[in-house]
């Protein structure tokens, strides 16, 4: 336990401590303790107005926290802003571009600031599959192309940390899929850490390893996707010959079940307890027709968390 803690601390790419941002006395983000490890794809989830963009703006030094500290690559953001930003690529909310310029010139303007080799432009265009379109003025681009150009711009400086705020906003399903597979490839190919925000779990769950769920400015869940899936694992449903009597028997064993549509619904329990219960039912002469696990979808679970129905 101690060993893993230490390991996590040295490898944290983003670490915030008690981050607070208030607007006119109202907290937009509070007590936020983000911990994002190297090489992770971190899904930052929350409904509209939860505080995702506010958090990301603080991480990029665009707004100042009311209190709390931010460490990126183990360095204090306030003191080492330039060194840190040199290794961070970002796309916040909508992509920005000069419409009258081509994609190439848009990237060139950023390249001049970053001072990276010209060849890098062709590389990032290739990564986001915009090769061949780079000479057209950007104002003629579709939303998806602009979004990909924004990601190309974020990748230009070969960042070690990529921060993307709702990169799939406004895209159609195939556009979403494209961006998703693009992001998924990155940590493998370039060894970079990604923080990607969204208000839909379904968008994130296929690419993120870890998720943080934020609600009204507070982190309500932060763990691996695998753990989230376990949490979401649902009830056990039994169809038996005499449901009423079977239920009495089960509840005498402390299962806390209910009867729904003629079936016994039991909350999640361990494999051993399930085995024992079934054995007992059979021994008491019940015929068991079906044993089903009713899995709550992740999305349902997420909604529960977000709506405050569940404390995690």
């Amino acid at each position: 336990m101690l060993v893993t803690e230490v390991k996590k601390m040295t490898q944290a790419v983003i670490e915030t401590t008690n981050l607070l941002k208030e607007y006119r006395g109202r907290a937009a983000v509070e007590h936020l303790n983000l911990n994002i490890g190297k090489g992770e794809i971190y899904g930052f989830l929350g409904p509209n107005g939860a505080g995702k963009t506010t958090t990301i703006r603080m991480l990029l030094g665009l707004i100042k926290p009311t209190s709390g500290s931010i460490k990126i690559f183990g360095q204090d953001l306030k003191r080492n802003k330039l060194q840190i930003l040199r290794k961070v690529g970002s796309l916040v909310e909508s992509p920005s571009y000069y419409g009258h310029l081509s994609a190439l010139d848009n990237l060139e303007a950023i390249r001049r600031i970053l001072n990276v080799p010209k060849s890098r432009i062709a590389e990032v265009l290739d990564i986001v599959s915009l090769t061949g379109e780079e000479k057209r003025p950007v104002k003629g681009f579709s939303l998806g192309m602009k979004q990909r150009l924004g990601i190309a711009a974020a990748l230009l400086g070969s960042p070690e940390l990529l921060i993307l705020d709702e990169p799939t906003n406004g895209l159609d399903p195939s556009g979403i899929q494209e961006i998703r597979s693009l992001i998924k490839r990155l940590p493998v190919e370039e060894g970079i850490t990604v923080l990607v925000s969204s208000h839909l779990l379904s968008e994130i769950e296929q690419m993120a390893g870890t998720v943080g769920i934020i609600r009204s400015g507070r982190m309500v869940y932060q763990d691996t996707i695998a753990h989230l899936q376990q949490q979401a694992a649902g009830d056990l449903r039994l169809a038996v010959s005499e449901p009423e009597e079977a239920l009495i028997l089960a509840n005498r064993r402390g299962c806390g079940g209910t009867l729904q549509e003629g079936r016994i619904t039991l909350p999640r329990m361990s494999d051993v307890r399930v085995a024992l219960l079934i054995k007992e039912l059979v021994e008491n002469g019940h015929a068991i027709y079906r044993v089903e696990e009713h899995r709550q979808s992740l999305e349902e679970f997420f909604l529960q968390v977000v709506e405050g129905g569940q404390s995690v």
Binding site: S90, V92, E93, S96, L114
Partner: peptide, 18 residues
């Protein structure tokens, strides 16, 4: 102008610039 449109200031000022 371009900085005021969309996230222009955010993009520019999140680069390593003072």
């Amino acid at each position: 102008r371009a900085e005021h449109a969309d996230g222009g200031w955010k993009q520019l000022l999140a680069l390593p610039v003072t």
